[in-house]
Design a protein around this nucleic acid. Structure first.
Lengths: 355, 355
DNA sequence: TTGAAAGCGGTACCAA
DNA sequence: TTGGTACCGCTTTCAA
């Protein structure tokens, strides 16, 4: 039976003496006093049960269309806003996904973060993020403050010397670690890792195959990147030059610039740079000294920064599997029951004119 | 009366037939089966009431010390983790603070974000952040997903053409807008704004007072920055040169480089650049052309990027009131009852060798 | 088609 | 010093 809501009394509670809810005061200026509008409040105002209100608001079938319409109007008029916390508590799930990341330094990190967030949004999740705090204890506190609010947490950065077992002990959430945890953790955690070696081996292989004779590696010596460099030679049954490794533990423009003289002095005719920023530092030096790229020196980078395609000559680089990572993240979050394990995605050589 | 917890039966529920909680299976490997440990569960296992459990866990006074200790041990053993969502729901407050920001482009933005987060953490809040979505409707959805989880929201970026009233209508949270909303909104919202004019007037005034005759402004023509530029002259009863405004709506290095020729051709002897990045673009051009800074051209920037103190010569700049902003944010969040209004903080000229 | 009611996990009041 | 219990706001089952 339809209900004429107009004839119902406006809701005014003062339970247990404390008027926690104020009545609606839709004054001349159409301003409403502060209040929390709940389902029960709508139900009481409309003179129906909560069941009818949820049915109307969720557009469930069954239920008198006229009543439903009126309830919807009333809800709108009262300014009903569902309380997500209450819903989460009752449902024991949440579509808020937490992400812990360190401050964005390299562009590729913040791009990955963006992409994951967009992917999750498209799937109906609400990504939130917090900065990685300075200590494991603080991280634990943060995660505690999220219990019941998030059910999945993505770590897009995890300090090498923190023990996940300790930090996460007893905190039952769905954890995903990106590019940070060793394979041996795969029996307990969900890992998404990046295979840097393959892309680098392809890139360096291309340098070899295109006839370059003296090929340098410029970047951190302690890095999986070096493995890719050596693999390219090994696969072809040859060896790199003895002085091929030009160590640069820092990966920024100025360090590339600083490393460049060694390349020129060593008469190298090609270089793999550990990041595009290193490569662009080398570019600048070559530019200053009139060294021609790629004629005299072929250059290839790593990370595939946005700008790399726009420099002159366009810089060859190696792209991270960002799309795949983001998709995998979304999958692991949607199918929360998937067991621990490791997914490794290859990097990809992007050839441009610099080599 | 103390209780010997050891003699209590382990908790095993199967209410309404569905075994929602599994019993503790502390097997030989000390691995526990997945479960949600609640206060009630601890209370039942210990054979006490919930009241006693909370007293023990919160360290309230009163209560048998021995019982309390045992309850605490039991809670630890069971791996009790409080559910923040339930707490928030009951308490009708939360110490999670939301922050909406666009992707960090300028360094100053991400620095401000960091600083605010650190300040809030120190005050016992848990800042989370989400990216500003592409549409007002999506933003509303995000905020809806946060109802009951956060009670304060900081907008560290707000698109000029979005109407806050529409997006936030009916969503009762404590909103704080940083550097983005016009003063006229101050009757309804809490605004923290940055007075760019004062710092710029000081900087340009310094250029004038140090004897520079032809002073240029390089940056967006439609900007409060221009006002500061003109103010410096007005305060001294003089006028800038007719061709002083060199419009550059973009604020990055390459645009500074592109704008520099006009400075040199116009024989300017000083320039205020709208950002440090613009200034560094000008630096590069001057470097390339052998123009001496500050002898031939005095340069001063805006934003006080980290690197500006390290370039040569060190770049004078204008610092944002980041500390004050962060403190004000924390204050507005702690004292949620403070009325709407606007706080304006001045920028500060930092003199270095470039002028 | 609708209403009543039992939770989700904590908090805090009141009575014993 | 302790136990019982009524909430917070929403979902969902069951019965009417």
């Amino acid at each position: 039976m339809p209900i004429d809501i107009k004839h119902q009394r406006q809701y005014t509670i003062a339970n247990d003496g404390k008027a926690k809810y104020k009545s609606i005061a839709n004054d001349g200026n159409n301003r409403k006093e502060e209040m929390t509008v709940t389902l029960k409040m709508i139900a009481d105002t409309a003179g129906v049960s909560i069941r009818s209100v949820t049915r109307a608001l969720k557009g469930e079938t069954g239920g008198n269309p006229d009543t439903c319409r009126k309830i919807r109007e009333l809800a709108k008029e009262l300014g009903y806003v569902p309380n997500a916390a209450a819903r989460n508590l009752r449902m024991r799930t949440s579509n808020v996904v937490g992400m812990i990341s360190s401050q964005d330094t390299a562009q590729v990190i913040s791009r990955r973060k963006m992409l994951i967030q967009r992917h999750l949004e498209r799937e109906g999740y609400f990504p939130i993020s917090a900065l990685l705090p300075s200590s494991p204890a603080l991280l634990r506190k943060i995660l505690l403050s999220w219990t019941g609010l998030t059910e999945s947490i993505i770590f897009s950065s995890w300090p090498r010397d923190w023990e996940p077992d300790e930090v996460l002990d007893g905190l039952l959430m769905n954890y995903i670690f990106i590019d940070n945890l060793e394979s041996r953790r795969a029996d307990k955690y969900k890992l998404i890792n990046i295979d840097r070696e393959s892309g680098i081996a392809t890139a360096v292989g291309h340098l070899i195959d295109s006839g370059r004779k003296r090929i340098a590696y410029c970047g951190p010596e302690m890095s999986t990147r070096v493995n890719g460099f050596f693999r390219a030679f090994r696969e072809r049954g040859i060896e790199p030059e003895a002085d091929a490794i030009i160590d640069s533990s820092h990966l920024d423009l100025e360090h590339g610039y600083a490393a460049a003289p060694a390349l020129i002095a060593g008469k190298f005719d090609a270089v793999f740079a550990g990041t595009d920023r290193l490569a662009l530092g080398i570019y600048k030096y070559c530019n200053d000294k009139g060294v021609k790229i790629p004629e005299t020196l072929a250059v290839t980078g790593f990370d595939n920064d946005d700008t790399s395609a726009y420099v002159s000559p366009p810089l060859s680089s190696i792209a991270h599997p960002e799309e795949k990572i983001s998709r995998k993240v979304a999958e692991l979050i949607k199918n929360i029951k998937l067991p621990p394990g490791e997914s490794i995605f290859p990097t990809e050589f992007i050839k441009r004119e610099s080599c």
